[in-house]
Nucleic acid binder design. Structure first.
Lengths: 202, 202
DNA sequence: GTCTATAGGCAGATAGAC
DNA sequence: GTCTATCTGCCTATAGAC
């Protein structure tokens, strides 16, 4: 528990995951190699194979850790007892943070490369989107009940539209290197879901 | 002008572009090789280099042809003299057609891989999105004037949101192999832009 | 756990015959 | 225009010393 030398520290497996995650989010799973990771960590390619048998196993571990962190982040949002619009804004903010570091959402990137991924990774990508949809659907349902949101489609379809729109806004904003472009899209998307008048219970 | 043997025919350069386009839309620019294209056309890799000096040149030609066809499709939509909501639906339909063939939008795919692309391709990808934004902005402005659309944000930002949402909906729908998922998102997106009552001029 | 060394394959690309 | 043959380089992965 003592302080680490610097933020990037941790055991070797974690540092490999850190470097690989950044590379995949920036360049894609087919756009990085073991050599890239090894160079960043100043170890050899052979050492990587001690920690992760192959690229498929590394990729799977990448998604698992990413999905777990995302789940934690969603729990943290839930624990803040804010209203539904604020939760949606906090959700969009997760994407903003990645984009600031010039990263695409890991699973958004992998969705593009889906047809070339090993089967284990494909399954994990789907699970990520399903989990996000479930969380968002719940937020939308509560917001509708509260009267803070005005959801026109089904909660499921609306949750899917939110995920899609945010992923797409990231995808398009990145070539422009323009975080503000993403934020404008996210704000407008959320605004379209916020009820125009105060809660009807008032 | 005489009939061709089968739909995929044309001169060799066109057939190379056809095969490469399909491969890139399905697997990404970093997910296909000259060998893949050569195998599909039953020619050798060396022959490909006669038509396109290198992968970068092939990639650039791919985007140029794709963008030109897209421009033609947008002109065709304009020539139909329909109202703005119908134009938006027709626009979304362009994406649906690609998805039915298990393809991502070419430039959406390349947006994901943007950081690994040769510079000439990067420029062409940006141009594609800019052109789409210009066309959509015009549709949104006309629709607002007509009273058929109710655009809350600026036409520019709304155009960007439409592109982003459709690209994202494609991106996410593809892993599920579910065209209906895309269509539901597109319908809900367009519905959120359609004015609730008839034109105020009535 | 990390290394050196190397296997075996595929990548994009070129030379030169036909 | 298309071929065969080949090059160089990088890829993932493994064996085995330390």
């Amino acid at each position: 528990m003592a302080g680490r030398k610097h933020p990037g520290d941790g055991d070797t497996a974690s540092r490999i995951l850190d470097a690989a995650e950044r590379l995949v989010q920036r360049r894609g799973f087919n756009g990085f190699s073991y050599a890239d990771v090894a160079a960043e960590l100043d170890i050899t390619k052979a050492s990587l194979h001690y920690h992760f048998a192959g690229k498929a196993e590394l990729g799977e571990a990448l998604i698992d850790r990413y999905a777990n962190r995302f789940t934690e982040a969603l729990s943290a949002i839930d624990s803040r007892r804010s209203d539904a619009p604020a939760k949606l804004a906090a959700y969009a903010n997760l994407y903003t943070r990645a984009l600031r570091d010039e990263r695409m959402c890991l699973c958004g990137m992998l969705a593009a490369e889906y047809q070339t991924l090993p089967q284990q990774m494909q399954t994990a990508v789907i699970r990520f989107f399903d989990d996000n949809e479930t969380w968002l659907r719940h937020v939308l349902e509560v917001g509708s009940d509260e009267g803070t949101l005005s959801v026109s489609g089904s909660p499921s379809n609306t949750a899917r539209l939110v995920i899609s729109s945010l992923e797409g806004a990231m995808l398009v904003a990145r070539p422009y290197g323009d975080v503000a472009r993403f934020q404008a899209a996210a704000r407008q998307l959320i605004a379209s879901l916020v009820a125009r008048s105060p809660a009807p219970t008032a």
